[in-house]
Structures are given as C-alpha cells and as structure tokens.
Nucleic acid binder design. Structure first.
Lengths: 186, 186
DNA sequence: TTCGAACCGATAGTCAACTATTAGATCGTA
DNA sequence: TACGATCTAATAGTTGACTATCGGTTCGAA
C-alpha cells in the first residue's frame, strides 16, 4: 500500500473506500457490511478486497488516518516537551478518549494494542529524548525508556476500552495508574 | 442458564459442549467452527445454539469455568489477606497470565473487560475489606475503593493482552502501573 | 406408570465475509 | 500515440455464523 508507486486511479479508489469505510464503520454498532462500504464508495466489491484483503485491514486503514489526524499533533507536542508527567498524562488521556469514541470502528480492528503500538513506533526516538528530559528533571522514573512509551500507551488504550466509567472516572484511573511512572520517593 | 432448574440431560449437553468448546477454541488460532464443537461434543448443532445463542456466549461460558478454576482461589486468598500491595500484585499477575495464555479463546469472547469485571463483581465486598486493611496499614492509597479493584483488574487483563513482551517484561509493566496505587509519599 | 413439558437431531435457508476468474477500461511510459 | 501493465466491475462460488422449523425422544412430576 505504497501510495507513491500506485497508479493515480488506484489511489483515488483507496481514498474513496477509506472515506466510505469511516462512515459505515462509525455509524451504528460497527457491523456495517463491506458490500455497503464498496457501494457507498462507488466501487466494485472486488476492488475493495484488492486493496484491503479483509475487514480488519480496512479498519486498520481508517484507524491510521484517524490517528494521524487526532493523535499525531499531541505526539509532536510531547516530543518537544520538557518531560513533565503532566504532558505524558495529557497524551494518554487523548489516546484513551479517541479510542473510546471510535469503539465501533475498533471492534472491526481485531488488534487495537498491536495496531496502536505499530503507529507509535516511529516516534520512539522522540520518546527517548522526552523520557531523558523527564528523568533529568526528576519527574519520571529512572528505569523508564523511550520504547516503554508506545507499549504503555497501547496498554492504556486497550484498558480504557473496558471501562464503563464516565469521563471523570476514566481520568481518575489513568491518574492512579500513571502515578506509578513517577519516581518512588519512599 | 440456571443449572438447578434444568433437566438432567440438558445439563449433560451443556457440560459436553463446554468441554468440546474449550478444546476447539484453544487449539490453533481460535477460529474453530461451532459445527466442529457440536460434532466433538456429540451433539446436534441446534442443541448448541439452543444453550449458547452465539459464539461469544459460548466463549464466555468456557471463560467463566476457567476463571472459577484458575482465578477464584487467588481471589479468596486476597480477600483473606492483610491488604498488602504484594497480594494485589500477585492477583493482577495471575489475571494477566491466564488472559494471555487463553488468547485464542478470548478472541472469540468479544468483550474481555466486561466479562472479567462481571465475574469479579460478586467479590466487591471482599475487596472492600481488603482495601480497608491496606489503607489502615498504609500500603494502599486512601481514595481507593473496593469497587475499583474489579475495574483495575479488568483493565490490566485487557492491557496485558497487547504486550509482546516476555514474562519479565510484563511483570515490569505491571509493577510500574500498580505502583500508582501506593500512597504518594512526596 | 403415565403424560406433558422440555429437550433432542436433522434439515433447510439466510446473510456476510471472503476467494477466484474474466473481460474490459485506463493509466503512464516510451 | 501506442501498448503493456495496472486497475476495474461483474459475477459466481465457498464457508461459517446464525435462524427457523419439526417430528421424535426423554425426563420427571403427579
């Protein structure tokens, strides 16, 4: 799925399919059919399957777009930040909020954690620097590494999905768990 | 599905179905068919659907049995414990370990978090007492409640599934996150 | 021991995911 | 602009989850 090596009409098909999939997957309980996606995209069903071999990969395509639009900006902010605990917490809250909002889509995703971790992986270098700054300032545990951040965020995204608590309750659990990343003072 | 009000032959059917389902779901990648389950159970496919209206509810039945066998004993130990942080950690590790081992089964479960929380709910009273003891001893945060424990365990079960880390790595993340439940000393 | 309710297997059918094929349209390079 | 590679729609078929029905069997209470 490398856009640069694809023919222009194929790229257009993929775009229309992703747009339609987003609409279909998000509406209702996430059980929209792929036939409907193809129909709404104005594309044959075979074309859909050519670009996305199964339902999961299509959902992953939609999720990635969403991620780029809604998480990436926060990510850059964190990478440029000073390593404060609050910055990490804000990013985690964002990830959990988006995951929850997109539950219907995620139901078709299969592996939320793996997909999320995959999307975060390119930012490990940035996390590395972030964590180093936080440790220098004494706001993050010394044994934390940059590679831990994608893992922890993926875990929190998965964990956030199971909560039936409201916004405040979710925030509370997030605080409780992420407090463990602070240095132990005792 | 109340065993006490069911006819003896129906109970026997359910038992054989659950046994077969455990075998079929656990083997391979969790894509075993319900036809195969019925066949291995020596039961008609209609009988299977009569007792378990869909794949998820069958998986939930298997999961509950597993839970009763492998988690419940740890649970009783915690409820009788003195509220130490280590006891809670041991229970969490157990939950994560079992969840991971049963990944193939859980793939058919649909809602791991909800199901887990549901199974833990009857123990809230015990957790309540446990947490109170821990708080009196100064090993658990004062704002923690008994109702938090099932939620946190369900979150950790979901979170544990996304990790590609080994046993030691998983243990490490669990420690990091659960340290947040200790009182803040600073 | 009887008899109705509960349970059973078999079967036929629907629906959606997914596979495979093919003839024709379109892109982009030479 | 010509032409081959890429992309396309249409279509037919397979598989498995799930529903509905029905005549026959078995349980267990009276």
């Amino acid at each position: 799925m490398d856009v640069r090596t694809m023919r222009a009409d194929a790229v257009a098909s993929v775009t229309r399919i992703l747009d339609a999939a987003r609409r279909v997957f998000q509406s209702g309980d996430g059980t929209g059919t792929l036939d409907k996606v193809a129909q709404e995209a104005g594309v044959g069903i075979a074309t859909l399957y050519r670009h996305f071999p199964n339902r999961q990969s299509l959902a992953a395509g939609v999720y990635q777009r969403l991620f780029d639009q809604e998480i990436e900006p926060y990510l850059l902010q964190v990478e440029a930040g000073d390593g404060s605990h609050a910055e990490l917490l804000a990013l985690a809250e964002r990830v959990v909020t988006v995951s929850r909002r997109e539950r219907a889509l995620i139901a078709s995703l299969g592996d939320l954690g793996g997909t999320t971790a995959e999307l975060l992986r390119p930012h490990i270098a940035g996390f590395e620097a972030f964590v180093a700054r936080g440790q220098a300032a004494g706001t993050l545990r010394p044994e934390l590494t940059g590679a831990d951040v994608p893992q922890l965020l993926a875990m929190l995204a998965a964990a956030g999905l199971v909560l039936d608590a409201d916004e405040a309750g979710r925030r509370r659990y997030l605080h409780l768990l992420l407090d463990g990343l602070r240095p132990q003072l005792g």
